[in-house]
Computed example of a mutant assay.
Amino acid sequence: MPATIHGERTLTELDFVRLGKLADHQLPPALADLLDAADVLPSREIAADLVTMNSQVEIEDPATGQRQQITLCYPGDSQPGAGFVSVLSPVGIGLLGTKTGATACWRMPNGTEGSARVVAVLFQPEASGDYTR
């Protein structure tokens, strides 16, 4: 099962450009597919409940109900143990461009499938007026 989302996938123009320039990393096929298929909007037009780069989100495991907070970040800022999840990871790809209430699904490198429901976008740079982060 590739990274899929139940609903729309939307990216900011800035996220789209920056992700396309991750030249020192080979883009995972699921991220390349997302970049090809996503709607791209100016940062000022992005809804506050959309997961963008550097957003802090609360997610819930649909199987266990366990909740956690994570921040979607670029690879250089990744610290999974501290809740900073790289956009190049299956979880990061699954969450990027989703909205509150959506369920993201992904396949881990070991073949196990995972999913999480976006409970809330706790912080989003664009919603706070930061259009360059």
Score class of each variant (00 low, 15 high):
residue 89 S to D: 04
residue 85 V to R: 01
residue 92 G to K: 00
residue 99 K to F: 15
residue 107 R to H: 04
residue 100 T to Y: 00
residue 101 G to P: 00
residue 106 W to S: 02
residue 108 M to D: 15
residue 108 M to A: 15
residue 113 E to A: 05
residue 109 P to D: 13
residue 83 G to D: 15
residue 92 G to V: 00
residue 102 A to Y: 14
residue 96 L to Q: 08
residue 97 G to H: 11
residue 109 P to S: 11
residue 98 T to V: 02
residue 101 G to M: 09
residue 113 E to T: 04
residue 92 G to E: 04
residue 84 F to A: 02
residue 107 R to A: 12
residue 93 I to T: 12
residue 93 I to N: 05
residue 97 G to E: 08
residue 108 M to F: 14
residue 94 G to Q: 07
residue 108 M to V: 03
residue 83 G to H: 14
residue 113 E to L: 07
residue 91 V to F: 09
residue 104 A to T: 05
residue 105 C to W: 01
residue 106 W to V: 00
residue 87 V to L: 02
residue 106 W to K: 01
residue 100 T to L: 03
residue 88 L to C: 09
residue 99 K to Q: 15
residue 109 P to F: 13
residue 113 E to V: 03
residue 87 V to N: 02
residue 84 F to Q: 04
residue 100 T to W: 00
residue 109 P to A: 12
residue 91 V to D: 09
residue 88 L to S: 02
residue 83 G to A: 09
residue 94 G to D: 04
residue 105 C to S: 09
residue 95 L to V: 05
residue 103 T to R: 13
residue 84 F to C: 00
residue 114 G to S: 09
residue 108 M to P: 00
residue 98 T to F: 08
residue 88 L to F: 10
residue 88 L to Y: 11
residue 89 S to E: 07
residue 97 G to D: 12
residue 102 A to C: 13
residue 106 W to L: 01
residue 93 I to H: 01
residue 88 L to H: 11
residue 87 V to R: 01
residue 102 A to I: 04
